[in-house]
Amino acid sequence: MTTIRPGVGEPPPEIVGDGHKTTVAVSSTGLPAGKAKSMFQLGFEVFIQNRLAIVGLVVLVLAVLFCFLGPVLYPTDQVTVNLLNVNLPPGPGHPLGTDETGYDQLGRLMTGGQVSLMIGFAAAIIATIVGTIWGAIAGFFGGWLDSVMMRTVDAILSIPILFLLLFLVTIVKPSVPVMIFVLGLTAWLVPARLVRGESLTLRVREYVQAVRVMGGTSWHAVLRHIMPNVIGTVIVNATFQVADAILLIAYLGYLGLGISPPATDWGGMLSNGTAFVFTNYWWLIYPPGFAIIIVVVAVNLVGDGLRDSVEVRLQRR
């Protein structure tokens, strides 16, 4: 599912243009005035001006607060089954009603969200680290090692990820750490490809060759010069990985192979809601569904914003 990544939400070109105008203050002599800004500052300024990205960031922070601080302000029992309060519609005491085992739906949205967000972020971090190392090694050493490593990536990519995940989940019993591990292990392919591609092009750049001419070792070139330039692309991809992981964990939960009850995630909640489509218990379907959409859209907006700021940095390289 990671294979198609449209350029969702590229901002209209003028936003990037604005970034240019403000980042380079030109004095009357036509030379940049004052101290040159660092790459990071440039990228940061572009990101700050991307309104959609900021909206995404704010929504994401709100979602994290809702899931992790929410239960403190709105404590609910998410462990004991309460069969007297089953499938109550939204009303006093239960703003979003209750589900088929009597859990308060709003509270469940919070605890389920904790699992979804935690797995999403952790899996993205693992995938990014594994993928970066894999891609850097392949791109750096080249030759037959590169072909073997990249054909392996191609092979795993050609197995639909959901099939692979379902198979892995039938072998191991799903718990939060296991899910993080399994999702991370299947999601590192795209960052591996990106990093390999980047390091292949960077390897022949003038400044990297200059390091070699000056007698720097290859490892020095990789660690000090290639890695810092790859990191932007990697971080951008990591945000998209978060979105993908949240979706994938939802898919697994929907297919009944996610986290075991009483713990749950948004996908698992939706899966339970499936049984009640024909009874019109809408409060069991729409809240977790919209929660997933809102968080994934927010993560994608942040990712797009980051990509634009990285691209500005690339243009100035």
């Binding site: 979105a243 979706l247 939802a250 898919y251 929907y254 996908g267 939706l270 809601g273 499936t274 489509v277 379907i285 569904g289 997933i292 959409i293 994934v296 859209v297 994608n300």
Partner: peptide
Amino acid sequence: AAPTFFIGL
């Protein structure tokens, strides 16, 4: 951003 099963439901 919408999971396929949510759209289907």
